[in-house]
Each structure stands twice: as C-alpha cells, then as structure tokens.
Design a protein around this nucleic acid. Sequence first.
DNA 1: CTAGGGTTAG
Length: 614
Amino acid sequence: MPISTHNAISIVELCSTLRQLQQLHGHVLAAGVLHDPSLFAKFVATLALCPKTPHHLNYSYELLAHSPHLPSLFALNSMIRAHSKSPMPLQSFLFYRQILFADALSPDNYTFTFLIRACTQASAMGAGRAAHAAALRRGFRSDAHVQCGLIHMYAEFGSRDAFRGVYAELQSPDLVTQTAMVSACAESGEVHLARELFDKMPHRDVVAWNAMIAGYSHMGRSREALDLFGLMQAEGVRIGEATMVSVLTACAHLGALDQGKWVHVYVEKNKLRITVTLGTALVDMYFKCGCVARAMDVFWRMKERNVYAWSSAISGLAMNGAGEKCIELFKRMEEEDGVLPNEVTFVALLHGCGVAGLVEEGRELFKSMKIRYGIEPRLEHYGCMVDMYGRAGRLEDAVSFINVMPVEPHAGAWGALLNACRIHKNIELGEFAMEKMMQLESRNHGAYVSLSNIYAESRNWGGVSDVRESMKAKGVRKEPGCSVIEVDGQLHEFFVGDKSHAKYPEIEVMVKEMLRRLRLAGYVSRTNQVLFDIQEEEKEDALCWHSEKLAIAFGLMSLRDSVAIRIVKNLRVCWDCHETSKFVSKVFDREIVMRDRNRFHHFKDGFCSCMDYW
DNA sequence: CTAGGGTTAG
C-alpha cells in the first residue's frame, strides 16, 4: 500500500538517523507525495534535530532545491535553525536572504530567534548586530524569544552594555528572560548583580537556580555555589542533572570530596542517568580530589565517552602524575571510541608527558598534533613543551624551543623556564627568564617567588632581598598561601599563621607535637625556603605556621586514623611542607593527598608520588 | 518549529 502524506509525517517523527530518513525518502518518492509542503517541512525540521554531520544539511538542501513548490517560511526557518547548530552557522544567512527575496514571505519571530542563535554560535558580532537591527526594524522589540536570544548573544560576545540595553527596554521580562539575564551578568563578572536579580525574581524554577549556581561555579566562587545549592534543597526545588553538574564543578574546584561523593550517591539513589556530561563532571571531580581509581572507575562505566570525557581523564591522570597512562588512554580513545582529540586533549596529554618526564614521547605527540590531526599548536602547547624540556633538565632545549616558537613567547613559556631553573638551580638562566617575564607580566606573583627560591637555594640572600625590594617597589604582594581541608563535609580554610580557627589552641599544640615527633624521626626544617633573610630560629618559626602544616595538624586531630588527609592548596607547596608531609605519612602512618596549584602529591610511607619533582 | 541552566585546559 502506498504511503500517504499523513502517515509519512508520523513516520518522520520516529526517525532519528539520517539513514532512516533516507529510507523513508525513498518510499515517499515512490508514493509521489514528497513535495507536500508540510511533509517537506517536517523532514527538514527532523534533520535539524540531528545535525551531527553536514550531510544532513546537504540532504535537506537537496530537498529544498528540487522541490517544485516555493519553500514555505516554516521550511526556511527550519533550515536556518538547522544551520545555527551546525559547524557553519553563518550559512543560515543564505536562507534568511531567500526569505527576504521571496515576495510572499517575510521573516517572523522564529526566523530571528534562529538567526540570532546562529550569530551567537559563530561568534559573529557584526552579523549579530545586523540581525538585532533587522529584528527591531520588523517590530520584534518586545518578543520574549527574540530578546532573550539577544541577551544570550551579547553575553557571549562579552558586550555588557549591549545586553543590559536589551534588558532595560523590556516592559516585564518573564522567567526565562530573567534567567538569561542572571546568566549574562554572572558570565560578565558581575556575580553580585546576578544574585540581586536572582533574589528579586518572583518565581524561580530549576533552570533559574541552575543558572545562578553555575554562575558562581564558573567564576570560581565555589563556596557560594554550594551554599546556594543548600538553599535550593531547603526550598524543595527538584534537582536535575544540570544542577548536579554545576555542583560537581564546584566540588572539583574546592577539592570537596565528601560533598562530591554525596552527589554521586544522590545520582545513583535517584537513578539519574549518567550521561556523558554528568559522567565527565564526576570523573573530573574525583580526579581533582586526587581519587584516581574512583575517577577511572566512573570513566570506564560511562556508556558514552566523547572528547570531553576522554580529555578530562587524560588531564586528570596528568595532574596526578601518571604520564604513561595518559599516553595509553590517548591511544585508546581513538581505537576504542573513535573519538578524535582536540586542542584541549593535547594540552592535557603534553602536560602528562611533562610531569612524567616522557620527553621523546611528548615530542612525537607534539609533531603528530599538526600532521596527523590537523591541530595547529597554540601558546598553551608551546608552554607545555618548554615545561617538559625544562623539567627534564634539558634547559638548552627549552630555550631553543622558545626561540623557534612561531608565535611570540608568552608569560607562560617564560614562567615554565623560570620554574625549570628553580628545579635545576640555574641562576643565570633564571634571571634571564625573569627579565623576559617582567616585560610581559611585571606583577606575576609566582615569578617572584620562583626567582626568590632560586636565590634562597644557593643562600644568596642579597638576591632574595632584591626580589623583595622590587616586589615592594611595584606594589606586588605575595599571594597569601591558603590550604583547605574537608572534615565531615565541612571545609576548613587556613592561611599562613592563621589563628582564627575555633580550635586554634589545640591546633597549635598539635603542630608543635607533630614537628617534635618528626624531628625525632630525622626531619630537619629547610629554613632557606623562607623569603626573608631573618634569623634562623625565626625562619624556622615562620615555616611552622605555613597553611599546609596547620591543615595537616588539624586533619591529624580530627580525622579517623584510616582516612587520608586531603588538602587543597592555592599555591605551589614549598619544599619544607613537602618534606614535612613525607615524614608525617611515615611517622603517623597516614596517607596525605595534597593538591597544589599545579598537580597532586600523594604521600605514603615517607615518599611522594611526584618523586620530589615538581 | 522559537527563548533561559550543564562537561575537558589555562
């Protein structure tokens, strides 16, 4: 029996792949009903929903081109919509022009909504402004969908005044538009404004909550993200996948393992499907809390793994010092899942080669990046290479790599070289790197600290005090060291010499007791790590109150014997604290997992996973 | 057939 138009429309809705649609196409052709305008439109609309390959678009385009009828506004809108989500969003304008040139058609609110999204996707500011102007000319000044799209677009462009202007023109913005505005403000760095708006909203649904939580998460204000999540639960709002993803991002940033685990349990209890996105967020959270085995477990259980998932695993292994495994994973991603790497994957991979000292492998992979995958190395990749050579002690190679970089070396490259000079105690080259660094970023805290450490290592106190003087002259302050430890799901924050904790008196006793026992075991403090040329005893005293030591002592007194002490530090760990941690792991038979600005240190039985190489 | 929230690095 030949297929009817009506049947065909129902069947189109059931199609989810291009193949199925093509088969249906055959039947429809045979039945001679292909060019029914509503069937055609349905075809195009369905294709628009699965725009993974350009073939879908070509296919719809063929349909359009061979249709004996003039395309309807609906069909053209569908084409604009489909292209807006494709890798070539600006092709949308071809169909917009067709609408303009067709006597019987004129663009409607749908047209502009999709067109604006296309400009957003393409980061095309000029086109976006043109679309905005056209929408206004045609009277869509108060269309909620169009205006909402504009807010989103200008936020993506970073045009704060533009999205504010759009919002200010609105008579009474609805829930969706208000949410868009909350996101826009947060994204442009005005989290406070976003929160004000959010608090003033008469009704807030899940998405509105998510927008605000994500706003905090993205700006690195993770504590506030978690606080707001608490409030959301208290209000009994239904919690969904997107909420969990933002919460996990915050947990990962803070290294809040207990809270992250809680999310994982919640997800399993409530049988939320672990999608790629949620899975990736979980994997990332576990890695950033130093739980390599758990992270990999979640990773392998994921039903689907895309380039985000693979990259986060590779990056996680790199952070935790497992360079060989990074390379292994990199090979498997293409072999097993057919996933191709992107530039982020390579940053992670090269970083992994660097921390593991796999120079030859790193060089090969760097070459393959362009040749095999067509990815042009960017600044970050060059930075990784300099770091890799430098760490391995191949300082000349690092320098010549900087010299042959086709792009102007950035602060990151000089910083990597400077750090390498610290590790390998090369004063002269270190001073050179510092000079270059100062021309680019004269207020880079880390650089001053590195250089000062280079001098201190060789007991060059004149150099140390010069560094201090030049910091003072430029008004650069050393960023205060801060360590965070989670106990019973509560995060406790310690700064250097910080006495503000409620249990400080006990902590002080514990630090002294801890150091006494370490000294008995042979620990000697390395006073040359102190920035200033003060008296030896004072130096030792200053070292005692580094934030890591306070946090470790607090961990020792508050956590059960069997649990590892997990610490997150905002700066790089200093040599003395690193040494202390090694001793504690042995003397107190306690695992310590420390995340510093760059990587993880897993201390066990007196050794660190970084092999003192960081 | 529209609009708002979510994942990898630095």
